[in-house]
Design a protein around this nucleic acid. Structure first.
Length: 492
RNA sequence: CGGGAUGUAGCUCAGCUCGGUAGAGUACUCGUCUGGGGGACGAGUGGUCGCAGGUUCAAAUCCUGUCAUCCCGACCA
């Protein structure tokens, strides 16, 4: 049992906070609402980045970088977008400090260094990017533009939580420009597929693909596509969004291109992003009361070797064997850490690596040396087995594959068990106020109904699933006719 | 921005009611024994009690102000 980790049943939220800190993923910083991502946590983010980056490039995108600051006049150009983010913007108003005349050890903002025009620290980059694209696009020959940016953004949130909602967060944002409406829609749908594939194959996290209702739509978008995942505590988490922006930004920034026929038309746009919030999703999908559980595809190291020994002589013998195993596994593409620190005892290390979610642990002691075996422990099931050294090259990759699949199946099973249909308002409230989870219910399509349901139950429409089945029904709240079910849940 | 709470050792906190030598656990350092699930014993390091005023012979403790953080709401990837 991990020492001092609150259990999920006791207090899920507390469990999450403790886990993030104790697994060495991140911690709160001296800056309000901003986190420090620690090396182990950042290593997971780098795995996420590397895989997504590969997938973006395979679908024809290139990386670029745009400025952190957005002049206010550009920011306000697309009205809905500006309005949507206005309440959570950090604003730079001055460019210089000076020594406090009343206290030479202190600095004050120099009132003479006020900026002519305020700079907004980007909450998202559509404005600065479309202002740039304007200069890049004249003809249909310049299209499409398929660019992604890895960056940090700032949204001044009232209440923050490590990874789930921080004032500054890391993300990627794709911004594409197209000559036709249908090509842009295809692009946003393609990137939604990329996100879904990443979530399911690499994070081992099943997601529902769908579109947002008007009230949940990205400010400035015509359509927002999303992937929604269900966390262990029955709350939903929006894991990624892909927006079809129509011609909104092209019109706001006057970006036109000449068609083959020589006519001038506004450009069609998309934007899409996922953030360090995925780290939160990963944690709340798989981890348990002993700590983090990582899918092998995203683990900074997939196997840890813990030596069990008495005295330097034994350690030397075991180390020799451990290094052999390490290089044998690395040749198979398995990442391995050999923890030969003499400063911690084996039992301590077992707990430590369980807390950090390392998928497989190998323990080798004198007993094993004598028998030509190792002890293999799986993080997902906590099962231990004795494996003959000769079988290791086969057993390890196979078990890693098993773990990856098992984690997905477990999460999918949890989602299935926590997805329920509600046909009456009573049923609906009972589920939402009970165990939560996804609720499939008919909705009359009106924003008023959506808002009333939100006010009465705190549940929101997570999405209208892309694969929703056409079926006649009546709205669970208003009784008005509806032709398909949408997904409701309380959300993070 | 409304409601509640808290600032004391690296961390978690006690001490404050009733003013009088700055405490515990943990972590850290050293030593010995240990080593197949967070070891034992011994010794040691570590503090401007958030900050600024005030009352007092004397303030972590009482008073005033201030700053910060956390929790619950409204907002949100």
């Amino acid at each position: 049992m991990a020492k001092n980790l609150t259990t999920r049943a006791e207090d899920y939220s507390k469990w999450y906070n403790e886990l993030v800190v104790k697994a060495d993923l991140a911690e709160n910083s001296g800056v309000r609402g901003c986190m420090v991502i620690k090396p182990y946590g950042y290593a997971i983010w780098e795995k996420i980045q590397a895989q997504l980056d590969k997938m973006f490039k395979e679908t024809g995108h290139e990386n670029a970088y745009f400025p952190l600051f957005v002049p206010k006049s550009l920011f306000e150009a697309e009205e809905k977008n500006a309005e949507g983010f206005a309440k959570e913007c950090a604003v730079v108003t001055h460019y210089r400090l000076k020594t406090d005349p009343d206290d030479s050890t202190k600095l004050v903002v120099d009132p003479d260094a006020k900026l002519e025009e305020e700079l907004i620290v980007r909450p998202t980059s559509e404005a600065i990017i479309w202002n740039t694209y304007k200069g890049w696009i004249q003809s249909y020959r310049d299209l499409p533009i398929l660019i992604n940016q890895w960056a940090n953004v700032v949204r001044w949130e009232m209440r923050t939580r490590l990874f789930l909602r921080t004032a500054e967060f890391l993300w990627q944002e794709g911004h594409t420009a197209h000559s036709t409406r249908s090509e842009a829609i295809q692009e946003s749908e393609l990137m939604l597929k990329v996100y879904a594939e990443f979530a399911e194959k690499f994070m081992a996290m099943p997601v529902i693909q769908g579109i947002k209702t008007e009230s949940e739509r990205f400010a400035g978008a015509v359509e927002t596509y999303c992937i929604e995942a269900l966390m262990q505590d029955g709350k939903a988490l929006q894991a990624g969004t892909s927006h079809f922006l129509g011609q909104n930004f092209a019109k706001a920034f006057d970006v036109k291109f000449a068609t083959k026929e020589g006519k001038k038309e506004h450009v069609w746009a998309t934007s899409w992003g996922v953030s360090t919030r995925l780290m939160g999703a990963l944690i709340m999908t798989h981890s348990d009361d002993n700590g983090l559980v990582l899918p092998p595809h995203l683990a900074p190291y997939q196997v840890v070797i813990v030596p069990i020994y008495k005295g330097q002589e034994q350690l030397d013998l075991i180390s020799e064997k451990a290094f052999e195993i390490k290089s044998e596994l690395e040749n198979l593409g398995v990442s391995v850490k050999f923890d030969n620190r003499d400063t911690h005892k084996p039992g301590w290390k077992f707990n430590e690596y369980e807390l950090k979610g390392v998928p497989l642990r190998i323990a080798i002691g004198p007993r094993d040396l004598a028998n030509n075996t190792i002890e293999l422990a799986r993080r997902d099931t906590l099962e231990k087995s004795i494996v003959n050294l000769d079988d290791l090259a086969e057993a390890i990759p196979k078990t890693l594959k098993d773990i990856q699949e098992n984690l997905f199946n477990r999460a999918a099973d949890h989602r299935t068990k926590n997805t329920n249909k509600a046909d009456t308002w009573e049923e609906f409230k009972e589920i939402i106020n009970g165990d939560g989870g996804f609720v499939e219910a008919h909705w009359d399509g009106s924003a008023e109904t959506e808002e009333k349901i939100k006010q009465e139950t705190k549940a929101t429409i997570r999405c209208i699933p892309l694969d929703a089945i056409e079926e006649a029904g009546v709205c669970v709240y208003s009784g008005n006719p509806s032709n398909k079910r949408v997904i409701f849940a309380k959300a993070y």
